[in-house]
């Protein structure tokens, strides 16, 4: 090949890559700023409205509770999946991933059928544990859809922790439980934080599954995404876009947090030395 031809090819190659990156970045910024431009000016009065305040409170409450539930179950599950060998492990692992692959609205239908049409569901409801068309349903929907993400993030962190660390701790006199709390869990801290951020942010935005299970009732099961949906359908653009802007701000902040947490633990502990 001619020298100039090589040069031309290289320039073309670089150009294609640069243009792709610039295009996508611009596209995303443009789309988001459309919402923010329309939503931000009305933010303050909208936030003061009773409806948005209700949505904010309900969203925070449900997402925090469902995230706590995710932690409570994902910690032992991900530990077991990374440390134990048992018959049918691959099958179990696939099952645990199913909610990720399902459209959330399908998960919602599944939960609705389980709790709305079975003896099990009726028995729970009779004891006052009512998931259908209640905030409890929102929490359950968020949990069901998000727990696999928590398990994924935590699981990959646990896999990165050398099992010999725990073993050494045990030779030094710890029980399994102590070794888990003194060694494995602290070493999984960054993964746990990242898992919390991603689960919580997703719970805040959860719509499809919660819609099926808890419905979209104004001032009853109205989370921020539901508020956006309800106000959009009845044409109250101001409130709708305020809710959307709030969700964008929270998501971007979470993403930012998530990026910071990803595996920076040791740099942090090292720099805190000096």
């Amino acid at each position: 090949m001619e020298k100039s031809e090589v040069r031309g090819q290289n320039i073309l190659f670089t150009a294609v890559i640069s243009i792709s990156i610039a295009f996508l970045t611009g596209f995303i910024i443009l789309a988001i700023s459309m919402v923010l431009l329309k939503g931000l000016p009305n933010m303050i009065p909208s936030i003061l409205s009773r409806e948005i305040q209700f949505a904010i409170k309900l969203s925070f409450l449900t997402s925090v509770i469902s995230t706590l539930l995710c932690i409570a179950i994902a910690v032992p599950v991900s530990y077991g999946m990374s440390r134990l060998e048992f018959f049918g492990k691959r099958f179990v692992s696939t099952v645990l991933d199913i909610p990720i692959a399902l459209p959330p609205i399908v998960s919602g239908v599944a939960l609705l059928l389980l709790f709305g049409t079975t003896e099990f569901g009726h028995a729970l409801a009779a004891r006052g544990i009512q998931f259908i068309f209640t905030p409890l349903g929102i929490i359950l929907a968020q949990f069901f859809v998000n727990v696999p993400y928590m398990i994924k993030v935590l699981g990959s962190t646990m896999n990165d922790i050398d099992p010999r660390m725990e073993f050494v701790a045990r030779t030094l006199g710890c029980s399994r439980l102590q070794a888990f709390f003194k060694i494995t869990l602290p070493l999984a801290r960054s993964g746990l934080m990242a898992g919390i951020v991603i689960t919580w942010a997703r719970a805040l935005g959860e719509f499809g599954a919660a819609l099926m299970l808890a419905g979209a009732t104004r001032l009853k099961t109205e989370t921020l995404p539901v508020s956006l949906f309800l106000n959009m359908s009845c044409g109250d653009l101001k409130l709708a876009l305020a809710a959307a802007s709030l969700l964008i701000i929270i998501s971007v902040l979470s993403l930012f947090l998530f990026e910071i947490m990803g595996g920076k633990q040791y740099e942090l502990s090292r720099s805190s030395l000096y």
Partner: peptide
Amino acid sequence: VYQDYALFPH
């Protein structure tokens, strides 16, 4: 004492 010492990094 392991080959790579396996000290607790945290």
